[in-house]
């Protein structure tokens, strides 16, 4: 096909395309689209997102397993030579809670602690309700 014929073909297609109809989607296209966007953005706002991705967790698990394998291979498992067997397991809470034996407190102090505890448990559901409402409004 020479240049002249090519030009003619181009002009012919230009004329056809000038008459080609522009199609329209359904009447409620925009309305449906906006509803879809609204639903999706609401879902995204409440979507669970793990702090660590699956690959990081798998990596950590593998690293931990390798470390454990190394420790076991180096120090053995309960043959009396490892450091694990040298740890004393008898619990001794005396230094930690010993001060409680002689402790006394005033009535006012007890009431204050109880009231603080009560209010703390009241505000947890109240705060949850408040945060749910503000998230919905957004």
């Amino acid at each position: 096909m020479d240049k002249h014929e090519e030009k003619k073909l181009e002009e012919f297609v230009d004329r056809i395309m000038a008459d080609a109809p522009l199609e329209s989607p359904s009447v409620d296209f925009t309305k449906n689209l906006m509803q879809k966007i609204e639903v999706q953005s609401h879902q995204e706002a409440f979507q669970y997102k793990p702090i660590m991705s699956r690959s990081v967790l798998v990596g950590l698990f593998v690293a931990f397993s390798v470390l454990m394998g190394y420790v076991i291979s180096q120090y053995g498992l309960g043959d009396g030579t490892g450091w694990f067997d040298k740890i004393t397991w008898e619990p001794n809470f005396k230094p930690l809670w010993g001060w409680l034996e002689n402790y006394t407190s005033s009535k006012v102090w007890v009431y204050a602690v109880l009231l603080f505890g009560f209010l703390f448990f009241v505000q947890v559901p109240w705060l949850k309700k408040h945060m749910d409402r503000t998230a919905l409004l957004k």
Binding site: L22, E23, S24, P25, S26, F29, T30, L33, M34
Partner: peptide, 26 residues
């Protein structure tokens, strides 16, 4: 919504010519 209204016919026509099916194009 204004942006959608401005381009919806063009986007739909392009999709329709590529796919050949109105429902799918929508």
């Amino acid at each position: 919504t204004d942006l959608v209204e401005r381009y919806k016919d063009l986007v739909f026509t392009l999709s329709l010519r590529l796919l050949g099916n109105r429902e799918e194009a929508e």
